[in-house]
Each structure stands twice: as C-alpha cells, then as structure tokens.
C-alpha cells in the first residue's frame, strides 16, 4: 500500500522482487545499490544466513526525483527464494505496490520458476490480492549462461498475460535498471489511476 504524506510531500511505494532460490533477486538489489548515487539511496539491509542466502528479506530504499512537487521514494524488498521460507515470503508481500518476478533462465531451473510463480499467486490470493490487478513485470535473468531456455519458451510459460518482460544478467547489471524503471513506471501509473 503506497503511503502519501502531504506534510512532507512524499509518495512512498513498496516493490518486491520475487522468484526461486538463487535466481538473482539480491544480486539485482546489490547492483542498484552499487550504481546509485548515495544521495538517492539509503543503506541496503540484508537479513541473510552465514552463507549469504536471504533469510528474511533484503531492503533498499531509493528516492527518485519529484512529481508535481512530491518526492518519490521506493522501498525495494526481496523475498527469500528457498521453498521452506514461505511464511516469510507471505509477510513481505503485505502492502506491496509492484512486483518484479525474477526467473532463472537455466533449463534445470524452469520447474523452480513455475513453482515460485504459482507460489506467488497463491500467497497474493491469501491476502486478497489478485495478480491481475497488481503492477508486475518479469525478468529473465542469467541470459549469459550456456544452458538457457529460449526467451520465447519462457514467455509461453511465465508470461501468458503479456506483461512487460526483460532479459537480464544481474551479475553484470545488464537489464537491471530497465527492469526497475519499468516496474516503477507501472506502479506510478496505477497510483495515478486512483488512490
């Protein structure tokens, strides 16, 4: 749920990166953190295990420019991808304004992508959200690896609704900002439609 503060003239929105374990959600945020001017971002918080697997969430606050005199702030979160952290994923989806579904392009991860996508729909439904009414986009990550599924095939399985989708290599940053911009744009358009 976005928070509009007329006193400080701020619009705050929450964006969640969802996807299977090791698909590159945290890597997306790390790249955004690295490449953003420190004036426009806060600290990145990672609640991770000792082996750097996300335990609860990563959090990165970003502030973009003004719109009609309102500062725009975006809180980026990732969910833990591993299957057994489902309770945590549900909590992080609360109050979400926009979602980036990060898919792992490797052939052997297609089942995990589908499982995670279905899990996302189920978790949203549990909180009375319908994916069709939430701004979301898809990122096909790890396009640089040799054993990837063709994008056309991935679209058929993961993007039947035809939402904006992007190819990416989050480790090098390819496609990371394109993805972020697209989801922010969708979130703001949704906000404009009606508060």
């Amino acid at each position: 749920m976005s928070f509009i503060n007329y006193s400080s003239r701020e619009i705050n929105c929450k964006i969640v990166y969802y996807g299977p374990g090791l698909c590159g959600k945290t890597t997306n945020l790390q790249f955004i953190y690295k490449k953003t001017n420190p004036e426009h971002r806060g600290k990145m918080i990672s609640l991770a295990t000792e082996t750097e697997r996300t335990l609860f969430f990563d959090f990165l606050p970003l502030s973009l420019g003004d719109i009609k005199g309102f500062k725009t702030r975006f809180h980026l979160y990732t969910v833990p991808g591993q299957i057994f952290y489902d309770a945590s994923r549900k909590l992080i989806l609360k109050g979400v304004d926009g979602i980036v579904f990060v898919a792992d392009s490797q052939v052997e991860r297609m089942d995990a992508n589908i499982e995670s996508f279905e899990n996302m729909k189920a978790n949203l439904k549990e909180q009375c959200y319908d994916l069709a009414n939430i701004p979301y986009i898809i990122q096909y990550n790890k396009r640089d690896l040799p054993n990837v599924v063709p994008v056309v095939e991935m679209k058929k399985v993961l993007n039947v609704s035809g939402v904006p989708d992007f190819e990416a290599v989050a480790a090098t940053g390819h496609g990371v900002f394109e993805t972020l911009k697209a989801v922010i744009k969708l979130v703001l358009i949704e906000l404009k439609k009606g508060t």
């Binding site: 749920m1 976005s2 928070f3 509009i4 503060n5 007329y6 006193s7 909180q127 959200y129 949704e190």
Partner: peptide
C-alpha cells in the same frame, strides 16, 4: 481493496 493508498494530510501529521 488492499491497493488503496494511505494518505496523511498536514493537519493529521501535526496532531
């Protein structure tokens, strides 16, 4: 609908 925004006006902020 859970997507509606939380809006706070100056007066409420002051209170």
């Amino acid at each position: 609908m859970p997507t509606s925004s939380l809006i706070m006006f100056e007066e409420e902020f002051k209170q």
